[in-house]
């Protein structure tokens, strides 16, 4: 027991000194578990996040928009993969993680449980959802667990094009016909609040925050990140000539930040618990992908074995 305490103290000292933790290093069991949960849920978010956008690839309004969206969705698949790999270094298998997603044990970002009803939603997602993700991910490039931080560096390099392609879509719509601008406003109306929810519960209702900050998993709290996002995004909406769907939103000279209205936390928890508009559809799509791909995975293994055997024989 005392040895364990000692190890934990040494571990915390390493973290405090700004050292990175690598896969085979000793780490407290809770540190390992917290990371497995956080990294796998982050990975699931990247993968499930392809679904609402994939919905519009075949209906993109031009070839320029189509190649951009396709490349973005392809990037998200890569992000999922980098993150699954990082989680695997902690001793969980890819299959276990997928199982947890399909059974509902593991969560993913609740934003992806909202439908994409119009082309403008693709613009709003790139601008707001990727924008919010970037704020979180930039912080995570300095997280204490090495493989997670490295995955984040790679991801952040790719993300900025995602947000720009989204904003360009919004810009196009806002400079277009009245109907197009209305479409953009409607997308903003529907995605603004769920985007703010992406940063998670208020700090005083987020019991894990303190430990996460101590371990340098998080370097800023949910509320700090959310405020940062609001401050950055409001002027971008102004530039588009769109109105934020929040009557309480206004610049606070004293604080040097925007004040904004109360988030509907009931809605947030409902969606987290599986009762959002698309939760069932998203999991069904992942389940179908798994089931339909099973014969391919098996055939590839069989083929690889056969190739190895014939190589062994000829050797």
């Amino acid at each position: 027991m005392s040895k364990e305490v000692n190890l934990e103290e040494q571990f915390q000292a390493r973290i405090d000194a700004g050292e990175r933790i690598e896969p085979k290093d000793w780490m407290p069991e809770r540190y390992r578990k917290t990371h497995i949960r956080q990294i796998s849920q982050h990975a699931h978010s990247e993968v499930v996040g392809m679904l609402p956008e994939g919905n519009w690839i075949t209906r993109a309004p031009s070839l320029r928009r189509k190649v951009g969206l396709l490349a973005k969705v392809q990037d998200e698949a890569g992000h999922g993969l980098y993150l699954y790999s990082a989680a695997e270094t902690l001793g969980i298998s890819r299959d276990q993680m997928e199982e947890q997603l399909l059974s509902g044990k593991a969560k993913y970002s609740s934003i992806f449980n909202y439908p994409t009803l119009s082309w403008a939603d693709i613009g709003a997602i790139g601008w707001l959802v990727d924008g919010a993700a970037i704020i979180n991910q930039v912080m995570l490039t300095r997280t204490s667990y090495g493989p997670y931080a490295r995955a984040m560096v790679r991801i952040c390099k790719e993300e900025s094009f995602h947000q720009r392609q989204g904003y360009e879509i919004m810009l196009g719509l806002c400079q277009g016909s009245r109907e197009q601008k209305e479409m953009a406003q409607d997308a903003l109306n529907r995605f603004w609040w769920p985007s703010l929810m992406m940063f998670g519960p208020r700090d005083h209702e987020s019991p894990n925050t303190e430990q996460s900050v101590r371990w340098k998993i998080k370097r800023k709290t949910n509320d700090e990140l959310r405020q940062q996002f609001v401050d950055i995004t409001v002027p971008q909406a102004d530039y588009l000539g769109l109105k934020m769907p929040d009557p309480d939103l206004k610049w606070n000279e004293e604080r040097g930040h925007y004040d904004f209205g109360e988030i509907n936390w009931d809605e947030f928890w409902q969606v987290v618990k599986g009762n959002g508009p698309c939760n069932k559809e998203r999991i069904a799509a992942r389940q179908a992908a798994r089931d339909n791909g099973e014969w391919v995975r098996e055939a590839a293994i069989a083929h690889a074995k056969k190739k190895r055997q014939s190589l062994d024989k000829s050797a």
């Binding site: 890569g78 980098y82 995975r297 293994i301």
Partner: peptide
């Protein structure tokens, strides 16, 4: 980084992508 593949040929293709 790392990835899963059935064999090294597939690993190479996936690594490229």
């Amino acid at each position: 980084g790392s990835l899963h593949a059935a064999d090294s040929t597939m690993a190479m293709e996936n690594a490229r992508d």
